[in-house]
């Protein structure tokens, strides 16, 4: 579904991603872990071109999206993204946060979008917050709504950029629960996270990144039980 070939990204002189290639199949739940500064967030943000790659190609659903001629907006409509800091629109109600994109991009009519929002909100248990503003919500509620907002576009893949890192510990669970349900429904997911429990339970594959490379990868059980690289061992010993 997503095919990354020889991807490099540098900020000025600083090389963040170094000639990286990876393939993600439909239905996979890929969890990316690694120390900070390893390039895992940059890698994720390159997948929907929030960062423009310095070199290499990315193919999504048969389209080479790194081609400058590609309409990036229509590509992004099929890739949902959830941010560490939620990035809800504070000037709109929750309902409008969710329905804005489907309506403006012509994906749905207003009534259709609102019914969809209603349905999604009920699924995450926040149907009573439709008319609230983001400032009135807790962090966990905000992130659940951010997930709903991305889901409202009916994406083919969901990208999560450290979705629980900015949350108070007691709110992490409610967000992970929503993500697990998404996974059960068969959504293709790429998740950058520090939640090793989530990686073990939900992930179909774990990537360990360090210094702009994917150092090692495996299915979760084997990855956590028998890490091959010394740096993976060091990292896991710190976080587990």
């Amino acid at each position: 579904m997503i095919d990354v070939k020889n991807l490099s990204k540098s900020f000025g002189d600083h090389l963040v991603l170094d000639n990286l290639s990876e393939h993600i199949e439909e239905g996979e739940k890929v969890v990316i872990i690694g120390p900070s500064g390893s390039g895992k967030s940059t890698f994720l943000r390159c997948l929907n071109l929030l960062e423009t790659p310095t070199a290499g190609t990315i193919t999504f659903d048969g389209t080479v999206i790194t081609d400058p001629k590609v309409d990036i907006d229509s590509v992004r409509r099929k890739m949902g993204m959830v941010f560490q800091h939620f990035n809800l629109f504070p000037n709109m109600t929750v309902r409008r946060n969710i329905t804005l994109a489907p309506i403006r991009t012509g994906l749905m009519k207003k009534e259709e979008a609102e019914a969809e929002a209603e349905k999604l909100l009920r699924r995450v248990g926040l149907q009573d917050k439709a008319d609230a503003y983001p400032a009135q919500l807790s962090g966990g509620q905000k992130q659940r709504i951010a997930i709903v907002r991305a889901m409202a576009m009916r994406p083919k893949v969901m990208l999560f950029d450290e979705p629980t890192s900015a949350l108070d510990p007691e709110m992490v669970g409610e967000v992970l629960e929503v993500m697990k349900e998404l996974a059960r429904e068969g959504m293709t997911m790429v998740v950058v996270t520090h939640e090793m429990g989530f990686a073990r339970e939900v992930g179909t594959r774990v990537l360990f990144m360090d210094g702009g490379h994917i150092l090692e990868q495996n299915e979760p059980q084997a990855f956590f039980a028998h890490p091959r690289e010394q740096r993976t061992v060091d990292f896991l010993s710190k976080v587990l």
């Binding site: 929907n48 929030l50 907006d73 229509s74 590509v75 992004r76 409509r77 099929k78 890739m79 949902g80 993204m81 941010f83 800091h85 990035n87 809800l88 629109f89 504070p90 000037n91 709109m92 804005l100 994109a101 403006r104 991009t105 951010a146 907002r149 991305a150 576009m153």
Partner: peptide, 30 residues
């Protein structure tokens, strides 16, 4: 206006002008 707002709008597939008009400008105006 926080750069994340523009990113969030664009990541949903809204174009630059729509993101400006519905998300960034109203916040900036306030």
């Amino acid at each position: 206006v926080d750069g994340g707002q523009m990113e969030a709008g664009r990541s949903l597939g809204l174009n630059y002008l729509d993101t400006m008009r519905f998300i960034v400008v109203p916040q900036a105006f306030k």
